[in-house]
């Protein structure tokens, strides 16, 4: 019993120390490190939310950029056109994405498996075309989010940090709750889950809505960082490519996976500036190599070899301990 308590304390302490160190990065880090940090934390959030859908609930979505776009455009419209604060844009983004997620769930959830996946992509492409032709959002011209120029990078960084860490916490709490058990059982065997009493539709819906709303909030800060938005960029499939890369390379169905994946993705792309023109080829080759060598992603490989799990979702009694002591 003692051993486990100590184990948990050490782990929690280590995590706390890291978070504090990262929090104070603006004090001692370079501008470059801060800008990288913003990207990493926001991508961690995107990855965690995609993982919640795809890695844990079995809902593979190619359309989460819908919500990135909704978040970004909310930030643009609220601050540029209506001159309200960023806090207002966060609230509005959450509200709009909530409603939109519910609305599209009706048709989308009628589809299963591959059809669901394609369905999500279709909705995002449709939204893209719609925005291009919509006067309300300035057609294809988009907006410069000028308020974002004056926000100190340290604030954007802290915002990203909160969102990134928040996403990890959120996913952890969900998976450790009853809904988490239901999600994992649905992922393993939907038919059996239903017979065991899992309300499939309801559970999928909650999961989808939570993931989408949080993605939208992440989108707000993403676009405060970029400070310029156009329909093609906001609703582009590139966002999904990024999410899938992060989750699959990092480790599908693990909480640590998207964290590792985001770090690898951002840092790798920084190095690829030295190889313009073939940067995409290299990125693809790296992805293929990792998948071949480590089919369960980097975290999967670490877990297999060393049995390490930082954020475990397994339910264990305190007496049961994984070391040999």
């Amino acid at each position: 019993m003692q051993g486990v308590r100590k184990n948990n304390y050490t782990k929690s302490l280590a995590i706390l120390v890291i978070v504090i160190v990262l929090f104070f990065l603006p004090q001692y880090g370079s501008d470059y490190a801060i800008s990288i940090g913003v990207l990493i934390f926001l991508y961690i959030s995107l990855g965690q939310m995609w993982n919640l859908l795809g890695g844990y609930s079995g809902l593979v979505s190619l359309g989460q950029q819908i919500f990135v776009g909704i978040g970004g455009y909310t930030a643009a419209l609220v601050t540029e056109v209506w001159h309200q604060s960023i806090a207002v844009s966060l609230v509005v983004a959450a509200g709009v994405s909530l409603v939109f997620a519910f609305i599209i769930s009706f048709p989308i959830f009628k589809m299963r498996g591959v059809y669901f996946t394609i369905g999500t992509w279709i909705v995002s492409e449709a939204l893209l075309v719609f925005f291009r032709n919509w006067k309300f959002v300035n057609y294809d011209a988009g907006y410069n989010i000028t308020i974002a120029y004056r926000i100190p990078m340290s604030q954007i960084y802290h915002g990203a940090l909160v969102i990134g860490i928040g996403s990890v916490v959120l996913v952890y709490l969900i998976l450790r709750s009853r809904m988490g058990l239901a999600l994992m059982s649905m992922r393993d065997n939907e038919g059996a889950a239903e017979v065991r009493g899992v309300r499939l539709y309801r559970t999928k819906l909650y999961c989808f809505v939570i993931s989408s709303v949080y993605t939208a909030i992440t989108g707000v800060v993403l676009y405060l960082n970029i400070a310029y938005i156009k329909p093609g960029a906001a609703f582009g499939i590139d966002w999904t490519v990024c999410m899938v890369f992060i989750v699959v390379i990092g480790g599908l169905g693990t909480i640590e996976g998207p964290i590792i994946g985001a770090v690898v993705y951002v840092i790798l792309r920084q190095y690829l500036y030295s190889f313009p023109g073939i940067s995409m080829v290299i990125l693809g080759a790296v992805a293929v190599a990792i998948i071949l060598l480590m089919p369960k992603g980097i975290m999967g490989a670490i877990h297999k070899k060393f049995g390490v799990e930082v954020f475990s979702v397994r339910r264990r009694i305190d007496e049961r301990l994984e070391d040999g002591s």
Binding site: Y32, A33, I36, I267
Partner: peptide, 8 residues
């Protein structure tokens, strides 16, 4: 942590 700081 070092990877991030070193990026600078």
């Amino acid at each position: 942590v070092f990877a991030m700081a070193a990026c600078g």
